[in-house]
Amino acid sequence: MKVDQELIKRVAKNARLELTDKELKDFEKQFNEILEYFNLIQDADTKNVKESFHPIEIKNHLREDIIKDSLSQDDALKNARHQSNNYFKGPKAI
């Protein structure tokens, strides 16, 4: 598998990152090197092996459905620089 600058640009767009020409060039080289290393796992015989999404068996625990205090609106907004009428203010959507 060969990674080229077009693919890197696509990944960056998905990740919401803008790369300079130098970063694009550096990433291309580093990606090819790192992905070749990642590819080592392809040799592993994983036939009939199930995925582990956690290292130890985790059981779902559901809490009782009781109303409890949660983050207040004031607290939720405390760290937001842009706000309006007690809401987060974001950039234009349309």
Binding site: A12, N14, A15, L17, L19, F27, A44, T46, V49, S52
Partner: peptide, 28 residues
Amino acid sequence: KRRIMLGTFTRMAGYRDAFYLKAAKVRT
């Protein structure tokens, strides 16, 4: 940025099975 980019790639359609899901099996 490098790790976000690598992780976005390993989860992208067409690569997810070969990387992320395969790694989860190797983890087992």
